[in-house]
Design a protein around this nucleic acid. Structure first.
Lengths: 210, 210
DNA sequence: ATTTTAGTGTGATATATGTCACCCAATTAA
DNA sequence: TTAATTGGGTGACATATATCACACTAAAAT
């Protein structure tokens, strides 16, 4: 199990009793890179707090399409799983582990309980929702107003910010995340190469813009 | 000023002290249909709770483009204005009154205060964020996966749900909300007319599908 | 070493949407 | 009553993206 010290570092703004509650009630789980953690339509039974690794959140189509929205990092929670009532809420998002991850799983019956007991939990939930709401706004801004070339740049920049300038993704990976086709991404990347924004390799490329 | 009875009807889940706090601190404001209530980049100085009428929330482009996201109705709050810290947060959305409206304006210094004092305010804020997060997810779903014809249908259905089957919008109005051009909307509406989904008039059309 | 597979490049073509030009009719302003 | 404005229809064309076909090559599997 996790130590209180680790928890304190991950979630520095909590009150003491909340750490204890987590240690008592949360289960520390692991998942391999690539695992699907939450599917669209799936009933939410537990909240998910990231301890180690990175999770990607997607909007998912009926016919298999996906659109990447944002990353979840250690110290962050998956907003959609922070349900504060017992009604069987269904997930409207797809969540996948991008790296091997560790996360805390908390049965949803504690959500409402802790909202009453811990002020810092309340703030944490609000902060989580607010920041994710803002991520969605950025996503809408991209899709509603930008062409694929700019969306691709935005996408790569998000990757670079997360994992560094060596982008270990295939064209197909990116195409899947942006709900387009591999050819489109290949052509746009080729343009970026011509403009000296990237250096291409097989299975990866380096972001060298500016 | 508003009566406590009206407040109780609009916001039935609040505790008694919260009604009093609102009556003491909130200002009841009015705005004409068409007024811009919040612009992108604008500093948020006060929270906005809808009392009467309907507000539309938009994502806004740098170069004047707009994309309609969702409606706000009486008893609902504008999530982006519910800031819980004193940092000068800037609006990431555009809000416009669609009808003449009345709304409560609450200086943001009370946001944090009331979070501490009123449990029901806490729940209200969380509920607000959650429901708006879900609206944004729906919007992303539309833009990321659907062509303009389906997005137009989705848009009209939102209108019909709000205001009824007589759609008092010009083609240009709709084009603005969906960040496309008037001609595109005209052609798609013409198809809907052929399919007997609508009956067209000047300045309006009727939704008669099924 | 040879075969297979996965990743990538690229032309040709289809489709959805954006843009321009111009027309007409209904409404409003003068 | 006439002129101006607004809403709408539509052809022609431009552009962005999707789709298909196929070639090439590095890496992996045999």
């Amino acid at each position: 199990m996790l130590s209180k010290e680790t928890l304190t570092k991950l979630f520095p703004d909590w009150e003491d009793g909340l750490y204890d509650a987590i240690l008592n009630e949360a289960e520390l789980k692991e998942a391999k890179a690539g695992t699907t953690l939450l599917k669209m339509g799936q009933n939410i039974k537990s909240a998910m707090l990231v301890v180690e690794g990175t999770i990607k959140l997607y909007q998912e189509d009926e016919i298999g399409g996906e659109y990447f929205m944002y990353h979840l990092n250690p110290g962050e929670a998956c907003a959609v799983t922070l349900v504060c009532n017992y009604h069987h809420e269904q997930s409207q998002v797809l969540a996948k582990a991008v790296t091997d991850i560790q996360y805390l799983s908390i049965p949803i019956e504690f959500m409402e309980k802790w909202l009453n007991e811990f002020k810092s939990w309340h703030y944490f939930v609000i902060k989580t929702y607010r920041s994710r709401y803002e991520e969605l706004l950025k996503t809408i801004h991209e899709i509603a107003f930008k062409n694929m070339d700019e969306r691709l740049e935005f996408y790569i920049l998000k990757y670079v910010k997360q994992f560094g300038a060596i982008v270990n993704l295939t064209h197909q990976d990116i195409a899947n995340d942006l709900n387009t086709s591999r050819e489109v991404i290949s052509r746009l990347l080729k343009k970026m190469e011509h403009n000296d924004w990237i250096v291409m390799n097989r299975n990866s490329f380096d972001w060298i813009k500016k």
